[in-house]
Simulated assay, not measured.
Amino acid sequence: MNILHLKYAVSIADNGSINKAAEEIHVAQPNLSRVIKELEADLGITIFQRSAHGMILTPEGEEFIGRARKILEQVDDMENLYKSDRPAQQRFSISAPRASYISDAFAHFSRSLGKADAEIFYQETNVLQAVKNILEVGYNLGILRYASKHDKYFREMLEDKDLTGELIMEFTYCLIMHEDSPLAKMETIRMKDLSDYIQIAHADPYVPSMPLSVVKNEELPNIPRRIYVFERGSQMDLLAENPQTFMWVSPIPERLLKNLHLVQRRCVDNQKLYRDVLIRRKNYHLTALDKQFITELTLSKRNCEFDE
């Protein structure tokens, strides 16, 4: 096994196809197939499951590719360090919850990239994947969202995985709905008022050492009609087009609400606190780009705080 073999495997994983990978890295398809078979035989694992839909990573393969990405990233860093004729490439990677104030910060952060080469990764995902991205995929930063009362469980998990966490924001979920929704015109909104409307939600909560069924019951109170959407853009489209929908969210910057004709309101019955915590490996040192993003995150947070 060598660095070239790792690059071949990562290319196949990225493309989901040996043929596409062969075109991308300019290697004959039979030779690429042979290399992967030899690699699997040498390691004693199955990296890819062959199917009619292409090359699919096995659980072992996901771990292998995650480690391969880390090695290739280290090789790139070494080359950048010692090849003076090669311009340094800016790198930034973060996994975050589906939160508008965070994506707003990321949008403003993108202006700071300038004209230098840059490789930027921003993934909206759940707690488990955010941790996995740091430990296995090679991401540098992550943001975890959880109920404040579970802070002890998450702190223990971070310590166990040699990660460190820094509180970004503590908040109570508010409601957003279209400005034409009857909910938006109510003087006071209570939990019982929501039963006639459609909730937009994503059901992927997680708390270490707690059964998923218990966490789901806690995070998703009974609503007769619910649409599960796991992509924030589509969630916003639904809210903007259907006045019968609502969603629980962390506070959103006023500018975004105006653009989508949405209204942000408190529910007097909801007093539960949540936390957004920035995580990274304990031995990881923040880069200039990391610090710039955190600055934008702080500014965005200030712009979305509101009182009634």
Rank of each mutant, 00 (worst) to 15 (best):
E187V: 04
D276M: 08
I294E: 07
E38T: 09
G233L: 06
K185G: 12
C174Y: 08
L113C: 05
T46M: 15
S300H: 08
Y197T: 00
V35R: 14
I134E: 04
L128Y: 02
S103I: 13
L220N: 11
N133D: 08
S148T: 14
V127E: 07
R91A: 01
I120N: 05
E218P: 09
Y139H: 12
S148Q: 14
S181P: 04
P182T: 00
D269I: 00
H5A: 15
F106N: 06
I143C: 07
L299C: 13
Y8R: 07
E187H: 13
M78Y: 02
D77K: 01
K37I: 08
P208T: 10
D76R: 02
K282N: 12
S300P: 05
V263P: 00
G142N: 09
D151F: 10
P208Y: 11
Y206W: 03
C304M: 11
A96L: 09
D290W: 00
C267Y: 09
Y173S: 07
E63C: 05
Q271W: 12
V207M: 02
A88C: 11
T298L: 04
Q271P: 01
L128D: 02
E187D: 15
A105T: 01
I12Y: 12
D237R: 11
N31F: 08
Q123D: 11
Y228W: 10
A99G: 14
R232N: 08
E305Q: 07
E40Q: 12
G233T: 10
L299Q: 15
R190N: 09
Q271M: 12
L113D: 03
R155E: 14
V27E: 05
K37L: 10
R34Y: 14
R280H: 09
E179F: 00
G114V: 02
Q29M: 13
G142W: 08
S103P: 07
S300L: 08
A203N: 10
D193S: 00
A68K: 00
D14N: 11
I279D: 14
F306I: 13
E119F: 09
N140V: 09
P87E: 02
S11W: 06
D104M: 12
D307K: 15
D269R: 06
G16A: 09
E219L: 08
